[in-house]
Simulated assay, not measured.
Amino acid sequence: MIALDETDRAILRVVQGNAMLSAGAVGRAVGLSQPATWRRLQRLREAGVLAGRELSLDLEKLGFGVTVFLGVKLAARARVGVEDFERAVSAIPEVRRVEHVLGRYDYRLRVVARDLADFERVLRRRVMALPGVGEIEANVMLSEERRPGPL
């Protein structure tokens, strides 16, 4: 684990909001010079604290107006391995996230669809047809609040 000071935390808060900012822009936001900010960003990348430069897509503007969280419990008697299920579920384009969890369900899936009819099609033809699926619970997302991380 890397030791973070308040300046590092301030930098992380800024880049969480926009990972595409230049070192100069981040530095201005936290009161550091561009070279000092660049060195800190590089140290955070090398330590693995900053990984990649992901952009988030506005799925609603792309026509995906429905997000559903699925709890999936694998059948107790299924002869399918966890790796087989994960490989199959990861191949479904509408499944945006696959989380292996402890609790009532084995997996939590984040599924996007154009509308509820499209979601029903994805559920029936793709998710329910996956190897080893025993039980599914669906929760439709009504709204989402994006908050900065814990720093």
Rank of each mutant, 00 (worst) to 15 (best):
R53E: 08
F85C: 05
A91Q: 13
A88P: 01
V66A: 11
V82W: 08
L50E: 04
S33G: 15
G48P: 05
V49F: 01
R39H: 14
P35E: 08
P35H: 08
L32W: 10
E83W: 05
S33Y: 07
G63F: 08
V68W: 11
A47G: 09
L70P: 04
G63Y: 10
V49I: 12
V95E: 01
P93S: 03
E83Y: 04
Q34A: 14
K73H: 03
G71Y: 05
D58R: 09
F85W: 04
E86H: 00
R77L: 05
R79C: 02
A51H: 08
V80K: 11
A76I: 04
D58F: 02
L41S: 02
S33N: 07
S33E: 11
R53G: 03
R40V: 01
K61M: 11
L50G: 00
I92V: 15
V72Q: 04
V95F: 00
V49M: 02
R45Q: 12
T37S: 12
A78H: 05
F69L: 14
L62E: 13
V66N: 09
T37E: 11
E83R: 14
A75I: 01
L70N: 10
A51M: 11
E46W: 01
V72Y: 03
R53H: 07
L41E: 04
I92S: 06
P93G: 01
E83F: 07
V95L: 02
R40A: 00
D58H: 06
E86M: 06
L32P: 08
K61Q: 14
I92R: 09
R96W: 06
A78E: 09
V80Q: 11
R53I: 01
V49H: 00
R96I: 09
R40S: 00
A36W: 01
E94C: 02
L50V: 12
A51Q: 14
R39Q: 15
A75P: 02
Q34G: 06
S90E: 07
V68A: 13
S56E: 12
R43M: 10
V68E: 13
L70I: 06
V68D: 13
A47Q: 05
A76L: 10
A88L: 02
V89F: 00
P93I: 00
L74F: 06
A51S: 12
L50P: 02
P35Y: 05
A47L: 04
Q42R: 15
G65R: 15
G48T: 06
Q34T: 13
V66H: 09
F64L: 07
V66K: 13
E54R: 12
V80F: 10
E86P: 00
V82P: 03
G71H: 06
R87W: 11
R45I: 04
F64D: 04
E86R: 06
R39K: 15
A76T: 06
A88H: 05
T67W: 00
S33I: 04
T37V: 08
A51F: 05
F85N: 03
I92E: 09
R39L: 14
L57W: 10
R43F: 07
E46T: 10
A75T: 07
K61D: 11
R53N: 07
